[in-house]
Design a protein around this nucleic acid. Structure first.
Lengths: 321, 321
DNA sequence: GTTAGTTATAGGTTATTATCTATGGGTTGA
DNA sequence: TCAACCCATAGATAATAACCTATAACTAAC
């Protein structure tokens, strides 16, 4: 039996012939002519090298080989129906995966969106990758993920970015620090103290340093630390001043004090970033649409900057091609 | 997803791509060129309307949709493999059915062949039809069965017949009949008595009557009976003389006596008959070959006339077209 | 930076498929 | 016997599939 040149259309026609028990009737149902169906069946029989139906006293009689082939076809089409269901879910964003890579700071706020989304779409896998800016950037270059979360989006040609949340920076000091109880502090006062900072590539540090440079200020003393947690703990134990995203600060007193700096309001934004030169997973589209619709609901409304509309619009355009 | 124009070849190529993880490698294995495979995959993706494999850092990566399609294909090919096994058995005569229609008298001897055959090929169905000559002839005309067993084969154009067993006729009389103990009896002596005969169409009766006509003899008195059993019983109870196939006579004394008629040796033959204008079931070929090889083994060698060779030879020729 | 290996694309040829219309031949039932 | 069905076959055509070669473009490794 040579399956090679047998198409599913052929099997469809054959099944109809078995079901209706008539070549003419099949032709009518499938909007074909009777000779077409006749010939199709003949071709199939040649491929199988065995008669599938025989005329017997003016009635079409299905042979054993034909019967068994019919059963085989039923099973086969069953599997393809299943596959179609799967595809439908996949395309509808109900199934599949959406790999997200994010910078460290974002790990505190993205779950607030991912949780509700995941509950709504339980069949969507959501693997998360967390790294510093350099690491996430490298992943972006290699196109390893579906969605990237940055502050300071990379300005590469085949990237599309959209802000979704303001990321205000806060200065924190130990509770026993000289500035801890001062009403208004200025940036120039602060730089005399020792600072605890993330690595040079980090968005937080870049933002802070560019502000210092703009103002012609220089830090007298700074220590580099590998994570936001490390900085928080170090500040609490009196090692110096920390500059941290508002979103990573726990609510309530935790051994440090947030300063009100009168002459500096530092803030960056988080962006959802996608590559436009790659196929975008349906689940990723689905998540971004969800985010656009529910940012205000699940994130603190004070900081939300919902600019996802344009991104989703351009994705919808792309979908057509 | 539009299956219509997807052939199994296409799925085969796709499966190989998934298995090898490479388009070039697949091309080499399937003796195609790389662009051919590339294009096939593209076509398949268009049919599914969803990427199945994507290039990621110089490596082919199978998408979710691709993976699921692969699994679907595995199942589908599994079913067709099963079907191929089924076909192989069918074509080898190991499976299927062989419908045999036979005249009444044959029912006593054919089972001696069918039994051993059935044991050898347990998956072959062997439905039997038994009727008088007219009935079997009608079935033959309509082509309802695969093999027919006649004495006096119908001489129709698209029929092929082969003798396999001699069918000698015997005259039986009640044990208390005047002729019962006579050494030699002649036909002309017999016709004075009452005869018990089958219906006019039956081969036995036709043979007997044509012999009478040839000799210019006329029966003085005859009674028609519907079955060989009825005749046997009637003879035993003294109703007259019977003419029966040797093969339907039980061995040993059963209330009647077999005469030795010196001037008449009546015998017909049983034939296997098939229609040559129809497809011959593999099981039927298989049975006829079996019969050719084992006639002498399972039937009384004295009567066997094995002329199946020619029949099977012409069947083998036909098989080619 | 050259080579070797990969995939993608363009352009072309040939074989096959998927259709059709027209027609012939056989059955059935009025 | 004739109309109304059925199926099979012939002959024709347009679309498409299935391939090819040549070539481009990219990446990894030497």
């Amino acid at each position: 039996m040579d399956l090679r040149h047998i198409s599913f259309r052929l099997l469809e026609v054959f099944m109809s012939v078995v079901k209706t028990g008539s070549i003419s009737e099949t032709a009518r149902r499938l909007h074909l002519t009777q000779p077409t169906v006749s010939l199709q069946i003949k071709r199939l029989q040649e491929a199988v090298d065995e008669p599938l139906v025989i005329m017997q006293q003016q009635k079409l009689h299905v042979t054993e080989a034909g019967h068994e082939l019919f059963r085989t076809c039923q099973r086969v089409f069953g599997h393809f129906d299943d596959y179609n269901d799967f595809l439908a879910e996949l395309k509808g964003g109900e199934r599949g995966r959406c790999k997200i890579a994010m910078v460290n700071t974002a790990q505190y706020i993205l779950p607030k969106l991912l949780g509700p989304y995941s509950n709504l779409h339980p069949h969507v896998e959501l693997p998360l990758e967390i790294g510093n800016r350099a690491e996430v950037l490298a992943r972006f270059e290699r196109g390893e993920d579906d969605i990237y979360v940055f502050s300071h989006p990379p300005s590469l040609e085949h990237a599309k970015a959209a802000r979704f949340l303001k990321n205000p920076l806060e200065f924190i000091v130990p509770t026993d620090h000289p500035l801890a109880n001062q009403q208004h502090v200025t940036l120039s006062e602060l730089v005399k103290y020792r600072f605890l900072l993330r690595e040079p590539g980090s968005a937080t540090r870049m933002l802070f340093e560019s502000e210092l440079q703009r103002r012609g200020l220089v830090l007298s003393n700074s220590v580099q630390m590998a994570s936001n947690e490390a900085i928080r703990v170090a500040v609490s134990s009196g090692m110096g001043i920390g500059v941290l995203s508002r979103h990573v600060l726990p609510i309530g007193d935790h051994g440090f004090k947030v300063l009100t700096v009168s002459d500096a309001s530092l803030a960056s934004h988080w962006y959802f970033v996608i590559r436009t030169d790659r196929h975008i997973a349906h689940a990723a589209r689905s998540f971004l649409t969800f985010a656009q619709d529910h940012l205000e609901q699940y994130l603190d409304g004070r900081w939300v900057r919902n600019e996802l509309h344009g991104l989703n619009l351009s994705l919808a355009d792309q979908q057509i091609c």
